[in-house]
Amino acid sequence: MSKILIIEDEILIAQSLRKFLEKKGHSVETTESGHEAISLIAQNDYDRIVCDLMLQDISGFDVLEESKRRYSIEEMSKIFIIMTAYNSPQVLEKAREYKCEILNKPFEDLRAAMEKIEGGE
């Protein structure tokens, strides 16, 4: 069982993902706000963090950048997973910078996507 944080401002997506993961026995928290995500990450130990890039308040990359205060890049690559609908070169480059996996929206295969989210330590 893992402790998972989902940062996603589309409530339907966040809640559906939460339900799926809870069914599999994980403990899941969600937030729509990047700022809130930053303070949650500072105060909690998550095994896995799914981070959307386009949030209402700040960019998902800001959340990643802020998390560098707490985690090394090595740790981040195990914890964070970037969720995005746009595979632009900039996104890919950033993902490489944080060594994070990318999860493309919409999921082509729901089961595979879930396994990717659960995948980390």
Partner: peptide, 17 residues
């Protein structure tokens, strides 16, 4: 459109389960 559609799809999948 793509985000809401994706959300709807996930929710639908969830309910089907």
């Amino acid at each position: 459109l793509s985000n809401p559609l994706f959300g709807l799809g996930l929710a639908c999948e969830l309910l089907l389960g």
